[in-house]
């Protein structure tokens, strides 16, 4: 195991976030506050409770997931895309380092950053609503698993993309709609039956549902199924990354 390599990649990526510290912290704090103003106060005043939970508190897990997913993807995709774009990737490819160690460095740093952002949003949300976490261990487990899984997805996008436009394509056109339609701001049971069935095909639903359960013990689908789906997604992403490194897809000629 090349620990030194993992350490320098991780440190390099974390330093990149440090250089944009204001943006890293201010951005999630401001956007979370805005969501609370718009959804919590304006809409929340008309919806008193959802499944026995105040609407303001109900949307917190969904809000965290929204930022977590987009931040994980953008951090990890940029982390690997930028060296490809500048050509400095040659150094990583010629180093005595395995694909798993490269992943540990890049994805580990992206997931750490997302975890920090998720924690900041959670703390910010605590200023607006009264929050209790029913299952802190599971909350943390879902948080970490989601950060890792979507950082892996971001890593895949960073290797797949051959332009900055493509780098933004999936987060904007796929992930954000899936999060909004996956029950971030509502319970699936509030939808008409036909749309409830359609929503079950949205993988993000399982993440938000499981995460929300860890807070309030209410969920749209069973917790076991949520956990299974996120682990399945994690395994799928690992498989794709393994294939990319084995074949050298868009990394080696």
């Amino acid at each position: 195991m090349n620990y030194h390599a993992v350490k320098v990649i991780y440190k390099f990526e974390m330093l990149r976030a440090w250089h944009t510290l204001l943006q890293t912290i201010a951005s999630p704090v401001i956007s979370t506050s805005l969501y609370f103003v718009v959804f919590g106060s304006a809409i929340g005043s008309r919806i008193q409770e959802v499944e026995g939970v105040s609407y303001g508190a109900f949307i917190v897990p969904g809000l965290i997931m929204l930022s977590l997913l987009t931040q994980s993807i953008s951090n990890a995709s940029f982390g690997i895309y930028f060296p490809r774009f500048t050509g400095t990737i040659y150094e990583v490819l010629s180093a005595p380092i395995s694909f798993f160690e490269i992943l540990l460095g890049y994805v580990g740093a992206a997931a750490t950053k997302s975890l920090i952002i998720g924690s900041i949003i959670l703390l910010t949300a605590g200023l607006f609503v009264d929050l209790t976490i029913a299952h802190p261990f599971w909350m943390l487990a879902f948080l970490i698993l989601t950060c890792i899984s979507f950082s892996l997805l971001g890593f895949i996008i960073g290797i797949w993309a051959d332009s900055f436009e493509k780098l933004q394509l999936i987060p904007l056109l796929v992930i954000t709609p899936l999060v909004f339609l996956g029950g971030s701001f509502y319970s699936v049971s509030m939808l008409p039956p036909a749309w409830q069935t359609v929503t079950l095909f949205n993988p993000v639903l399982y993440l938000i549902s499981g995460f929300r359960w860890s807070f309030f013990e209410v969920s749209d689908v069973s917790v076991g199924l949520s956990l299974f789906m996120i682990l399945l997604f994690l395994g799928l992403c690992m498989g794709i990354v393994w294939w990319m490194f084995k074949t050298g897809y868009r990394l080696k000629q």
């Binding site: 030194h4 320098v8 390099f12 330093l15 380092i97």
Partner: peptide, 18 residues
């Protein structure tokens, strides 16, 4: 890279090669 310092980038290379 663009934003790194000379010292950091050389240290990065050393670590990368174990």
């Amino acid at each position: 890279g663009a934003f790194d310092t000379v010292w950091n980038t050389v240290s990065f290379s050393r670590g990368l090669f174990g």
